[in-house]
């Protein structure tokens, strides 16, 4: 395509990107500002607010909880999601069509409704402890990533190489680990990262499944913002952005950046 883009269109796109990046830059500015609130023009710079995060036990605790919940639920989702994705591709003809639709449901059903229903049926109804319900909720939330992203990798996987390995004497389970899994490595990494990030950032499900004793970071942020308006939240936000940057760097290293667009 040799025709040029209209300059007005380019200018518009530049403005949109300013709109996308501006607020995040402002959050960083707020986190580093040395006044107790946000001023314009900005005053001096400080890292004081980052220290404050770690002085506040609520943030320390919820940060740990968020990491634990994200790790456990992502691993659970991959553990049950990888065989499911494999089955959905390998035995496509034998399995009913609605089965793959079933794994779209967690995306289709509003998260906040899922959160409330888990509270109603599992936590209150069955009486499972808060932590278990929270992990179940997050596993459900991220399961579609495991199933769909890995399915997408398996869709381009040539199952005849698996048969080749078996014909050469490799037992089926071993073949799965030595032949199939290495070939969908990119999908597994991508699924892990997307799932982890989704879980860390989740609000709508955790909202109902946390209590005074146990909470996640985003819920703690929400609660804090409603009572105080100080730059501590901005510093926490910056920490979360740093996490995102790290994740993107990992993706870039292992999969290449084009993967992010999918």
């Amino acid at each position: 395509m040799t025709d040029r883009l209209h300059p007005a269109l380019i200018a518009f796109a530049v403005l949109v990107y300013f709109f996308l990046m501006g607020p995040l830059v402002i959050v960083i500015g707020a986190a580093l500002s040395d006044t107790g609130y946000l001023t314009f023009p900005p005053q001096g710079l400080t890292l004081h607010w980052f220290e404050r995060i770690f002085e506040m036990s609520a943030f320390r605790r919820t940060m740990v909880t968020s990491f634990q919940v994200a790790t456990v639920s992502t691993c659970c989702a991959l553990l049950i999601g990888i065989p499911t994705a494999y089955a959905l591709n390998r035995y496509r003809v034998q399995l009913p069509g609605w089965l793959s639709t079933l794994f779209v449901l967690p995306v289709l059903i509003p998260e906040i409704v899922l959160g409330f229903s888990l509270l109603r049926s599992i936590q209150v109804g069955v009486g499972l402890p808060v932590v278990s319900t929270l992990i179940i909720g997050h596993t459900l939330l991220v399961l579609p990533y495991a199933v769909r992203v890995i399915s997408a990798s398996l869709a381009s996987f040539d199952f005849s190489i698996e048969e080749a390995a078996v014909s050469l004497g490799s037992p089926p389970i071993k073949t799965f680990f030595t032949i199939v899994l290495p070939n969908v490595r990119a999908g597994v990494i991508a699924a892990f990262i997307l799932a982890f990030i989704t879980s860390i950032n989740d609000v709508s499900i955790s909202l109902f499944l946390t209590g005074p004793g146990i909470s996640t970071l985003p819920i703690q942020i929400l609660a804090h913002v409603e009572q105080f308006f100080d730059p501590v939240i901005a510093s926490v936000s910056v920490l979360l952005m740093v996490l995102t940057v790290i994740v993107m760097a990992v993706v870039e290293r292992t999969l290449g950046l084009t993967f992010l667009a999918k």
Partner: peptide, 25 residues
Amino acid sequence: SALIILAVFPLLTGVVVRSFAWLII
């Protein structure tokens, strides 16, 4: 690819952070 990354970044940054940014503004 740079523009795509710049669009992915906010997407991976949580809803709370991005909403909070507008509260600051």
